[in-house]
Write a protein that binds this DNA or RNA. Structure first.
Lengths: 235, 235
DNA sequence: CTCTGTGAAGTCATTCACAGCG
DNA sequence: CGCTGTGAATGACTTCACAGAG
């Protein structure tokens, strides 16, 4: 156990390990070695041991890791032991799709509100979970009353920075941004941008050079478990 | 100009530079230095020069880069000079949202077909662009007739690998995957996975430790331009 | 003997720093 | 001069390899 800075690459992998462990637990498997876990993704076993060792000594030499024990540790490390309340700004196609996305619930994220500036949409409930659409001008108020701690930005690039400013004013510290712009956050606020255009354009580069060996940089991929998921993740 | 292997980090950045250059061109700016470009994102200017130098000597010493010239070069490097035809598998919320996503068009990607197994949806047209929903069993046939070269997987994790197999059988070489599973592609097929759960769980880690300085790893962020976009990117 | 935890080595990416061109 | 292009230096992440615990 050390108290160094943890890289985001490590936390992303922890998230991946966790999903795998959940499946192993569901399958009734009690222990797993770093090697067996590494085989699930295409990772090096030392990588996994190092990632875990940042947070403690969870393993048992000669045995491996207790699945259930490790699962609880990672859940706690990632802060998934308490629920997060999500507000989605932008009730367009993407916002609506995300409000309906069941996969979040597994990670203890609950979408509690949508925000929009379209009069037609405000006041109505959307999706399976019947999430209410609020006036975006009431963001701060609703964020407080609904105890929202995570915001999703699903608006036009043009207005994304303005929305982020409102989100930050409302005291929200974690933001997932889908708008294709670089947003400026003030210190203490974490913004993660998911950019579809960049992903597609990288694919295009690959298509333009089929002769090039498919050298996916291990640092830029997010490996996943092979085992099929039980739960439905409707998109 | 060298002929080394190009990292995906480089191609992602090229995509970002390109977006910025398009804006600069629209604003009537003729030349830009690597330093000025680097200031737009928070990058080092040497990084930009190196990225570009992999593909040629596009700059002019003492001046910088000609915006329009560089723009055309990068467009060509990324293979965005010819259109890509996209098929989206899964006409659920996300698939529909993506079919409506105008941002793709800017990068010369055209969504030409949706696929689903739901009888209710098959045969109907969806979204602003009125994209037809086909029976997923006809994927290979439609992929061929519509000349689809990029597939988007927007289905459940459970069926994603099966869908990928069909996509590969149809001869499609580039795939953007939204299902939260590690997919196995055969050689010569490029799969890029966008994982929302992992992104959210990383945010959760940050929320669990607000004391930690927000050290976003420069390799894991995708920097963007500050300048507001002209075009609407409705989501 | 097996498998963890970890220092040391190796690999890859970014930044520095400067020669050299315009 | 200013700015590119690039070797050399630094830094970050991964993998190796092994001591030591069970």
């Amino acid at each position: 156990m050390k108290s160094e800075k943890i890289s985001e690459l490590t936390t992303s992998r922890l998230s991946v390990y966790l999903r795998c462990l959940n499946l192993l637990a569901a399958a009734g498997i009690k222990t797993i070695s770093s090697q067996a876990l590494a085989d699930q993704f295409n990772l090096n076993s030392a990588q996994i041991r190092k990632d875990l060792a940042y947070f403690g000594e969870f393993g048992v030499r000669g045995v491996g890791y207790f699945v259930d024990d490790l699962r609880q540790h990672i859940t706690k490390i990632l802060g998934l032991d308490r629920p997060h309340r999500v507000g989605i700004v932008g009730a367009g196609n993407l916002g609506t799709a995300l409000a309906n996305y069941n996969g979040f619930a597994t990670s203890n994220f609950i979408v509690v509100a949508l925000f929009d500036n379209d009069r037609e949409k405000i006041g109505k409930s959307i999706g399976n979970a019947q999430v209410m659409v609020h006036d975006v001008r009431k963001l701060a108020r609703v964020a407080h009353s609904e105890e929202i701690d995570v915001a999703v930005i699903a608006v036009t690039a043009r207005v994304a920075q303005r929305v982020l400013n409102q989100v930050m004013s409302a005291g929200i510290k974690a933001v997932l941004n889908f708008a294709p712009v670089r947003l400026h956050a003030r210190l203490g606020v974490k913004v993660k941008t998911v950019d579809l255009t960049v992903s597609l354009e990288s694919l295009s580069y690959f298509l333009a050079r089929p002769q090039i060996t498919c050298v996916t940089n291990p640092r830029s991929i997010l490996p996943y478990e092979e085992i099929a998921q039980r739960e439905e993740h409707e998109l």
